[in-house]
Simulated scan of single mutants.
Amino acid sequence: MFSPKRLARLKWACRRGMLELDVLFMPFVDEAFEQLDDEQQETFERLLTCDDPDLFAWFMGHQKCEDPELAEMVAIILNRVKV
């Protein structure tokens, strides 16, 4: 369970330098983050430490994420967007 302070930091980290990433992360953290299990929440937090060019490449399908946990989180976020 994330403390309110940690959740606020997480939301701040969702604000990226690329609009394409902002429109993925901001709604996800506001609407779906709480439904993730603890391990997935930790993985999402770790995902936000990655560089924007890597994130962009993964989410746009230009490159495959080599980390299986991060790749699964990318898929979770993308599947949510498609719904």
Score class of each variant (00 low, 15 high):
residue 80 R to D: 13
residue 32 A to H: 14
residue 72 E to G: 09
residue 37 D to G: 05
residue 76 I to V: 15
residue 75 A to T: 14
residue 53 P to D: 07
residue 27 P to T: 04
residue 15 R to G: 05
residue 70 L to T: 02
residue 76 I to R: 13
residue 3 S to L: 12
residue 76 I to P: 01
residue 23 V to M: 11
residue 56 F to N: 10
residue 18 M to N: 09
residue 26 M to S: 07
residue 29 V to L: 01
residue 34 E to M: 08
residue 4 P to V: 03
residue 78 L to M: 14
residue 34 E to Y: 07
residue 24 L to W: 09
residue 80 R to K: 14
residue 24 L to P: 08
residue 14 C to W: 05
residue 60 M to Y: 05
residue 36 L to E: 07
residue 80 R to H: 14
residue 69 E to C: 04
residue 45 E to D: 14
residue 54 D to R: 08
residue 80 R to A: 11
residue 56 F to T: 04
residue 42 E to R: 14
residue 57 A to I: 01
residue 7 L to A: 01
residue 77 I to V: 15
residue 76 I to Q: 06
residue 18 M to G: 00
residue 4 P to Q: 06
residue 51 D to V: 02
residue 38 D to E: 15
residue 38 D to T: 14
residue 46 R to K: 13
residue 78 L to N: 15
residue 21 L to V: 07
residue 69 E to F: 11
residue 35 Q to W: 02
residue 42 E to F: 02
residue 29 V to S: 01
residue 23 V to P: 00
residue 75 A to M: 09
residue 53 P to Q: 06
residue 45 E to T: 03
residue 28 F to I: 11
residue 64 K to Q: 12
residue 50 C to S: 13
residue 28 F to V: 11
residue 52 D to P: 07
residue 66 E to S: 14
residue 33 F to T: 03
residue 63 Q to G: 00
residue 80 R to P: 00
residue 40 Q to K: 12
residue 38 D to F: 09
residue 56 F to K: 11
residue 65 C to G: 08
residue 32 A to I: 00
residue 30 D to H: 11
residue 47 L to K: 05
residue 30 D to G: 08
residue 37 D to I: 02
residue 21 L to E: 04
residue 14 C to N: 03
residue 62 H to C: 03
